[in-house]
Design a protein around this nucleic acid. Structure first.
Lengths: 144, 144
DNA sequence: TTCATTTTATTGATATATCAATTATATTTG
DNA sequence: CAAATATAATTGATATATCAATAAAATGAA
């Protein structure tokens, strides 16, 4: 008999890795040279252009140093454009180039299909329950 | 109102990152210079000394190249000892040094405490349900 | 206003992730 | 058996993760 307490984190890890691999595969069918995390960064910047690098880093669970390098790369690849923010010269305005926007447009339907696939045969209630349990775990771990 | 299908993977990712940060913090209170993944590798090798690097890589969701470098490092740090396998000279026998075993012994109680903390207030049924839902997702993603 | 503190981003060092290419050894097949 | 194929591990190149140190600008308090 399985003892879930011993294996749940293993299963969680496996889920996220499987999903990342799956996403990557389907992303690459419509756009080449994009990673799952780069897509996330593009999406956040598109929806909230005022975000600082630090804020994006927090949203995608990375640190500032990683974000600096990711954004450098995305600028080099022509997805993003950095310009100085005259209101606060420590930070940058970062905006999507047309190429960056095009990538998001191409990926939008893929995201929807991916989610459908991932959650096939799982009810809304079951997803809610999943979300609830995971949030309990997060809050347990943070109260320490 | 929240739409879990849009955010579940975000929550899953957050759970695993939070748990890793939490584990790391508590690991470092009893052992210095260890990572969560290194501990996992030590554990697998301790429980199944016959495992090849490739097999371990699969168990910890990494690729062979990463494992090669991780094991190199763990040998340099004196946690592991590599020796040639005379039955198949392509692979190595990898065994824990006394130092490696000591690390596992020191971490064992921490693991138990960590799990207790993580799952406080969550019933066995709820954990089972979590496990079930995640496995449905994994299987959905793999049938593609 | 000036100095100390905080914030934002960068850089350096080291480890890890990923993919492709390579080496050495084993296994299979004609 | 010899040649082709497969397997285990390594290496190289590039990207990312993490921590510590730093630089530049903004903010706060005396």
């Amino acid at each position: 008999m399985k003892i879930p307490a011993k294996t749940v984190f293993y299963t969680i890890e496996r889920t996220i890795k499987t999903y990342r691999k799956f996403s990557k595969k389907h992303f690459l069918k419509v756009v080449d040279d994009i990673t799952v995390d780069q897509k996330l960064v593009l999406q956040y910047l598109n929806d909230h252009p005022e975000l600082s690098q630090n804020e994006i880093a927090e949203l995608v669970f990375k640190d500032n140093a990683s974000l600096t390098r990711m954004i450098d790369l995305m600028v080099r690849k022509g997805f993003l454009k950095r310009s100085i923010n005259p209101d606060d010269r420590r930070r940058f305005n970062i905006e999507l180039t047309p190429k960056g926007k095009e990538i998001l447009e191409k990926l939008a339907p893929v995201i929807i299909t991916n989610r459908k696939k991932a959650f096939a045969g799982i009810s809304q209630e079951e997803l809610m329950q999943l979300d609830t349990t995971l949030n309990k775990i997060i809050s347990n771990l943070n109260n320490d």
